[in-house]
């Protein structure tokens, strides 16, 4: 009898180990392709806390440079952004972040107010697969799932990614147990230049109201930050497209005024910031490139220093050691990407 139990335990352990290994093998690694998918998980490798946390979609992880905020203002910041991050995903990421640290400021980009329902499985995966298992992850998955998805496949990603068996590459083995860092504190660097020309204006909408569920989550964010003593700052990044309607702007302004929250629409400040959409965007105005992101961060760093309880930590050795190292990596990445871009660009 004892022998049977020992045999059973042994094989259950072998089964579990095999499943763990298969999960690791079949999960997309997002190293050479779609690095956006690696952003959320990178946060857990951070060694220090942060004064400022950015939350939101590509309009944060493409438009702000935490490294510049450090170098010029001594601010420690991190971007918990991911592609087409929906507001409930942002909320649960915010809640989860507050389990790890209590920053001084949370910056939330309001573009996702336009999405009142789950959008696509592919984006859900980019946003949620990287989250560590937690009540927040489960809640985020439940809130985000499209009809065809199941919670189980988020808990056991093999159930989703098993069909990759015929597209596994060397990368899948190489990154079985670890990942390279693809961002700079959540910022996904791009040095290419593609000027914004003929930016389309928004076509009229039948209804400009944001969905009630979005307001609920925005309320929850404001309540959570208030409860934790964190300053919530609402922003609209200076991306020319998707179009940001005046009617949306009014609703956010009203909300911010009602809740006593600062709200900055960077689209109205591009001249002041110095963003030039002929040189500061890599995709015709959807996102800023490194040069635009640094200009925007420079302005915002000044604003944060003036308006929020943040501190310059450049003199604090434990921070300085880590952040200077990050700066070096940032500079190296910038140099490498610029070399690649200038090599590619026939001009």
């Amino acid at each position: 009898m004892k022998k049977n139990i020992r045999t059973a335990i042994l094989w259950v352990l072998i089964l579990a180990a095999g499943l763990w290994l298969l999960n690791a093998l079949f999960m997309p690694k997002y190293m050479s392709d779609i690095p956006e998918g690696a952003l959320i998980a990178e946060y857990y490798k951070e060694e220090t806390g942060h004064d400022v946390i950015f939350i939101g979609d590509c309009e944060v992880y493409e438009n702000f440079s935490p490294d510049l905020l450090w170098r010029e203002y001594g601010l420690t910041s991190y971007i918990r952004g991911s592609a087409q991050q929906l507001i409930w995903q942002s909320y649960y990421l915010m809640e989860e972040t507050l389990n790890y640290e209590t920053p001084k400021v949370m910056v939330f980009n309001v573009l996702s107010m336009k999405y009142g329902e789950p959008q696509s499985e592919a984006y859900n995966r980019l946003n949620l697969d990287g989250m560590r298992l937690s009540p927040q992850k489960i809640a985020a998955v439940r809130a985000s799932m499209t009809e065809e998805e199941s919670l189980l496949s988020y808990l056991f990603p093999l159930l989703r990614y098993h069909s990759r068996w015929n597209e596994l590459k060397g990368e899948d083995l190489r990154y079985l147990t670890h990942r390279d860092i693809v961002s700079d504190s959540g910022y996904l660097m791009n040095v290419q230049v593609r000027p914004a020309e003929n930016v389309p204006t928004g076509r009229p909408l039948g209804d400009y109201s944001f969905a009630p569920v979005c307001w609920d989550y925005l309320d929850k964010m404001a309540d959570l930050c208030e409860e934790k003593g964190v300053q919530l700052v609402l922003i609209k990044a200076p991306s020319l497209y998707p179009y940001w309607y005046d009617q949306w702007e009014e609703q956010i302004e009203d909300y911010a005024a009602r809740r006593g929250l600062p709200y900055i629409n960077f689209l109205e400040l591009t001249d002041e910031i110095g963003v030039d959409f002929a040189t500061d965007t890599y995709d015709s105005g959807l996102h800023l490139n490194l040069y635009g992101a640094e200009k925007l961060s420079r302005w915002f760093g000044q604003w944060l220093t003036a308006n929020c309880p943040v501190e310059d930590r450049r003199g604090q050795e434990d921070y300085a050691n880590i952040w200077n190292e990050k700066s070096a990596a940032y500079a190296a990445r910038k140099a490498r990407l610029e070399a690649e871009w200038s090599g590619e660009d026939p001009a």
């Binding site: 089964l15 499943l19 298969l22 079949f26 499985e121 065809e148 159930l159 989703r160 098993h162």
Partner: peptide, 14 residues
């Protein structure tokens, strides 16, 4: 179990 989980036709897409 391993083979069915890997090569089974199930989930999104199937």
């Amino acid at each position: 179990i391993w083979l069915t989980l890997i090569f089974g036709v199930y989930g999104i897409g199937f």
